[in-house]
Design a protein around this nucleic acid. Structure first.
Length: 567
RNA sequence: CGGGGUGUGGCGCAGCCUGGUAGCGCGCGUCGUUCGGGACGACGAGGCCCCGGGUUCGAAUCCCGGCACCCCGACCA
């Protein structure tokens, strides 16, 4: 591609719009055009990268036994009502009506349809396993699109759906996919980490996310340096620091005027925060729930939501709290009987706690469970804190932000049972197909690759996904010898099957170098009067920015060897 | 959905408070000089000032109402 002919150009000034690195680089490089919040057009450079990533994914899926299919974006809403996911997705599902007023939706993913396809085409144990997959556009009306391509409303995604005889078969498919994903990330230059993930309301037993550790990430990951344990904060557990067990003392009422926070309470009574119990009120599907846990810990809402099997969980409003007869700031489980009471197991890791007295400006000292109060459900519902012990080896845990670049689930038989996708086993008995699903966002992968591979000058494309492998910088294009040498080099490299971006513009060297740095092709070849005097071109690797002179007749071999080694 | 912010040539911004013919830098076009890290000069093109209403002799500017986009949070298979 001659740069002088390319649709799209780079910007000199920093786009004000963009915050995250990948978003800024994409805009500055002229790779994307934003049509609306979370909706983008891809210019040629971005599209080439996306196609490269797609191809890598396709190759790995095929190698793992996948078979590519295509499914509709436009789907009848009733399909989603049948699975219950119209409600589960809520406003995230784009809904519309056709001319006959029939309700339709734009598919955010495709389990419903693929399961129906399975019902139609899989009848016997001999028809299993099957691993159909799709790479296509999905639509989600995200509450808040953000960070360029990181979270968008229209995006290309690969989803593979595994269909197996039984749990053991699912385990095999799952492991295959995990391996395929690792291959994909490696080829895209992404050191992604497999972490245990929350499987959501419908998910089955196992679920893993692949996370790229990055400051700009939306997710938080808990990691153990000792044994390698890693999990999404949403589902991670840590060893909560125990307190010394004391003999229970008698409950004692104390006046705490104007004290409404755990910190204030701990300071006022001169006890550690861990020696208090806090109360938090939630509304779970409209019901107020009383939640208590040790004062030094916070509620993990995902764990709580899963525990309560709630579709909708949020903090209760002041009105709801008041209506339930609770005294915010001085609440405790003592004497609460008409609400569902949930406690974190940390309330057993200690004794003689300070708790609210359920009347204003008053607390109790020396509260002990179960002597002084009852609860309905006790479980681990606390958020892991940095430094807590690893649940597997006890070493301290650390927390980092990360970008979710893939998610795999063992779905089980939820969808096959909803849609009646059964097969007959060897005994002639009807069995539900056991399913899994495995998603990876193509655009997010590109953005993640940029977050991971850049410097202050621009993008550093990993070789396998780079839009072009070679960037020819021709300085002084008006000099006939430069032009003919560069033209020649361009066609020679192309003749060798290499993808080449040729900066043939009449621009100053500074402009060309800066654009080359920004656009980030792995290999740069600088053709200039100076270099040509010695019959050479200057060879620069974008990753290291190391340069060396290479004779014209040795360029092809040099380029090929560098690209081969970087793969 | 809560909180904050911004809408003025392609990009980055000033002007608004205190109403009076819309400005700067970059980019873009032509010509000339330049040519190894975002060159220089001359001339030039390009703007429904987000939209609608109101106030006023007169609105980018003041008032009211919308909309869009960005950021934080909520949300997120």
């Amino acid at each position: 591609m001659r740069l002088s002919q390319m649709f799209g150009k780079t910007l000199r000034s920093e786009p004000a719009e963009a915050e995250s690195v990948s978003h800024r680089l994409m805009l500055k490089a002229g790779m994307v055009y934003q049509v609306s919040a979370g909706v983008y057009s891809y210019m040629p450079l971005a599209w080439r990268v996306l196609r490269n990533i797609e191809q890598i994914i396709r190759e790995e899926m095929d190698a793992a036994g996948g078979q590519e299919v295509r499914m509709p974006v436009l789907q009848p809403l009733e399909l989603w009502e049948a699975s219950g996911r119209s409600a589960a997705f809520g406003d995230t599902l784009f809904k519309l009506k056709d001319r006959r007023q029939r309700p339709l939706c734009l598919a955010p993913t495709h389990e419903e349809v693929i399961t129906q396809m399975a019902k139609q085409h899989i009848h016997s144990y001999k028809d299993l396993p099957r691993l159909p997959y799709q790479i296509q556009t999905k639509l989600r009306d995200e509450a808040r699109p953000r960070a360029g391509l990181m979270r968008v409303r229209e995006f290309d995604m690969k989803d593979l759906y595994s269909m197996d005889l039984d749990q053991a078969g699912l385990d095999v498919s799952y492991d295959k996919m995990v391996q395929a994903y690792k291959n994909i990330y490696k080829r895209c230059g992404l050191p992604a980490l497999a972490v245990e993930a929350d499987s959501g309301a419908i998910g089955g037993k196992d679920s893993h996310e692949f996370i790229l550790i990055a400051e700009s990430g939306e997710d938080r990951v808990v990691r153990c340096q000792g044994c390698g344990f890693a999990a999404n904060l949403e589902r991670a557990s840590g060893v909560k620091p125990p307190l010394e067990k004391e003999d229970p003392l008698p409950l004692e009422e104390v006046s705490t005027p104007g004290i409404h926070t755990i910190k204030g309470l701990a300071d006022y009574l001169d006890v550690p925060e861990a020696k208090t119990l806090k109360a938090v009120f939630y509304s779970a599907d409209g019901q107020v729930v009383f939640v208590t846990l040790r004062g030094d810990l916070e509620v993990n809402e995902v764990k709580l939501k899963n525990l309560l099997r709630a579709a909708d969980l949020r903090l209760a409003t002041d009105e709801e709290v008041k209506a339930a007869g609770l005294v915010a700031g001085s609440a405790s489980p003592i004497g609460i009987t008409d609400l569902k009471r949930v406690a974190d197991d940390s309330i057993e890791l200690g004794s003689n706690f300070v708790v609210g007295a359920n009347k204003p400006d008053t607390h109790f000292k020396n509260a002990n469970y179960p002597r002084d109060f009852r609860i309905d459900v006790m479980a681990d519902i606390a958020e892991v804190k940095e430094g807590q012990g690893c649940p597997q080896c006890g070493k301290p845990l650390s927390i980092a932000r990360g970008i979710e670049v893939g998610h795999v689930f063992k779905l089980g038989t939820f969808f096959s049972e909803v849609f009646g996708a059964y097969y007959l086993d060897a005994q002639g008995k009807q069995q539900p197909i056991v399913m899994g699903c495995y998603g990876i966002g193509v655009g997010r992968l590109m953005a993640a690759a940029m977050e991971q591979n850049h410097d202050d000058k621009g993008i550093i494309w990993p070789v396998p996904i780079a839009p072009y492998q070679v960037h020819i910088c021709a300085l002084s294009m008006d000099k006939p010898d430069v032009q003919s040498a560069a033209d020649q080099l361009y066609s020679t490299l192309q003749g060798e099957g290499l993808e080449v971006l040729y900066d043939d513009r009449d621009e100053s060297p500074g402009v060309k170098f800066n654009d080359a740095d920004l656009l980030g092709m792995p290999v740069r070849l600088t053709v200039s009067p100076r270099n040509l005097k010695s019959g050479s071109v200057e060879f620069t690797e974008r990753v290291t920015m190391e340069t060396r002179m290479v004779p014209l007749d040795g360029v092809v071999a040099e380029v090929k060897s560098i690209l081969a080694n970087s793969n």
